[in-house]
Design a protein around this nucleic acid. Structure first.
Lengths: 214, 214
DNA sequence: CCTACCGATCGGTAGG
DNA sequence: CCTACCGATCGGTAGG
């Protein structure tokens, strides 16, 4: 998988190796977590020596932080960018959420959503890794909240709709779908998530407003 | 913490040690995960020798499985039992959910909800540990679905209410609240979760039905 | 990027 | 329940 190739075109030598390392690191971490991601396994998976790989980062924590940043960019490219193509307002909000759910269902990484995995892994473990994960989650939920607000400003959602509240809900439902899908392997949970979000939007969408969630 | 003392009164010698081990194991795993839970750290925290502790279980996987079973019983005692005291129907459903959210907010374990942590940790790692975690989650969501159905049967929720759908939603929202609370330490997420669930119930509760979620 | 190491810790065993 | 171990693997270093 050369997931990162899109994001950081290899302008100089060596950057391709780093991209390949981080793409594999995201994939392993989606299954084993950022702690279960060991330098030895990662090096072996890439046919590199441990110390050769190690030299790229300097410490395991730096590898973890670099992997989070790579995943942040990758998620933006895979979910935000395509989702934002839709028309501003409710269509765009629905499009981003649908892309997100589809992304989780497609299992781009073997363990499903990278951030769902590492956010649960580090949520109660203070330190730089947790801080970066928390920042990524905040950035994402804030982006969702902005989309809700845009729909509100266009009159496609009632003034009573609270962007922070709804963004938090949608994120929880999507993360829940990812988790229960990985756990039970029954794609019905994505139907559950879509219905929950659709119903929630209906409460705030003025009579006659049309929208569709995939 | 002698969390398990309630569940398994020490009928025979040695069982007290096992309870103490499992109570500490649940607490550590809520932070570090069931993989981050090492026999060495656990033994040291309990002032036992590694091999002394090891003898109780025979393998790390057995320790992990025993910890899950202990957590299953503990969760039943802490959330289901008190929650079920309320009157059948909507009050009971609300009471169980409120107890669950309160349990997460009180941080009975340092890392918050044990099952939220290990369910994300093992959701994509096939094996006996994942299977037991999946079973526990199914048992819990099924219990929630039964409570929704009881409320339906009593006419406190509309016939259109789908117990499986709603149970899945409530579980996702509660797990989401636990995760974002651990991550950001802002208790407002419990308010978000309560409002989301309340609003969702309002959609299906016949006009004039009274209920409260904490 | 490599080989060749390091001390610490991992899960697990032998023997009591 | 203990002491005393085992081989394997961990993150990390020296030196090239």
């Amino acid at each position: 998988m050369n997931a990162l190739a899109v994001l950081e075109p290899r302008t100089r030598k060596g950057s391709h190796t780093r991209e390949a390392i981080l793409a594999k690191a995201m994939d392993i971490a989606s299954v084993q977590g950022l702690d279960g991601l060991t330098i030895g396994t990662l090096a072996e998976a890439l046919d590199l020596s441990k110390s050769g790989l190690f030299a790229h980062f300097g410490s395991k924590e730096e590898l973890q932080l670099a992997t989070i940043q790579a995943a942040r960019g990758f998620f933006a490219q895979e979910v935000m960018v395509p989702g934002l193509k839709a028309r501003k307002g409710l269509p765009r909000l629905c499009s981003v959420i649908a892309t997100w759910l589809d992304y989780a269902e497609r299992e781009v990484f073997r363990g499903g959503c990278f951030f769902t995995a590492v956010s649960a892994e580090f949520d109660s473990r203070p330190g730089p890794v947790k801080d970066q994960v928390a920042d990524c989650m905040t950035e994402w939920v804030d982006a969702l909240a902005r989309l809700v607000k845009e729909a509100k400003d266009l009159g496609e959602l009632d003034r009573k709709a609270d962007p922070r509240q709804l963004a938090w809900e949608f994120n929880s439902l999507a993360m829940g779908a990812n988790n229960t899908y990985q756990l039970q392997r029954d794609p019905i949970v994505f139907t559950f998530a879509r219905k929950a979000i659709r119903d929630r939007l209906k409460v705030y969408a003025p009579e006659g407003t049309r929208f569709q969630l995939r």
